[in-house]
C-alpha cells in the first residue's frame, strides 16, 4: 500500500493502491492524516488502484470521516472495485460517506 497525493485549490486527491489490512492500516492512517492540512476544504480518496480492504482499513476510513466532519472538511471516496464497494455496503458506510463512480464525479461533488 502506498498513498500518492496531489492538491488543487484546497482539494486533496489521495490515491491508495494495493491492499489495506491489519498489517498496514496504521501506516495508512498516518499517511492519510499527513496529506491533509487545516487549510484544505476537501479530501477525495481515490480507490481506483486499491485491490483489497479489510475491517482494519474500514476502521481508518470511519476514523477519518469522523475527524474530517469535526473539522468541517468534505470527504468523498471514488472509483472502488465491486468487491470493495460491497464491503462498504454491508458495513453501512455507503449511507454515511459519499461514494462516487469516478474521480471526475467526486471532484464535482466537492465543488472542485
Amino acid at each position: 500500500m502506498a498513498i500518492s497525493a496531489e492538491r488543487a485549490d484546497g482539494t486533496v486527491i489521495a490515491k491508495a493502491d494495493g491492499r489495506i489490512d491489519s498489517s498496514n492500516s496504521r501506516e495508512f492512517h498516518s499517511e492519510l492524516e499527513a496529506v491533509v492540512t487545516d487549510s484544505d476544504a476537501a479530501l477525495v480518496l481515490d480507490f481506483e488502484d486499491l485491490a483489497y480492504i479489510s475491517s482494519a482499513g474500514m476502521r481508518v476510513i470511519l476514523l477519518t470521516a469522523k475527524s474530517l466532519q469535526k473539522s468541517g472538511m468534505k470527504f468523498v471516496l471514488c472509483s472502488m472495485n465491486d468487491s470493495i464497494r460491497e464491503v462498504f455496503k454491508i458495513s453501512g458506510f455507503d449511507k454515511i460517506i459519499d461514494i462516487h463512480n469516478s474521480q471526475v464525479e467526486a471532484l464535482a461533488a466537492v465543488g472542485a
Binding site: S54, S55, M58, R59, L62, L63, A65, K66, Q69, K70, V87, I90, S91, G92, K95, I96, I97
Partner: peptide, 22 residues
Amino acid sequence: PDLTSPIESRPIGGLGVHFTKT
C-alpha cells in the same frame, strides 16, 4: 455491529464477524 448511526456516533469496529456472516 451498528450499521445505521450517523458518522459522529458510529462506533468503531465489530465488522469482521459481520463480514463473515454476510
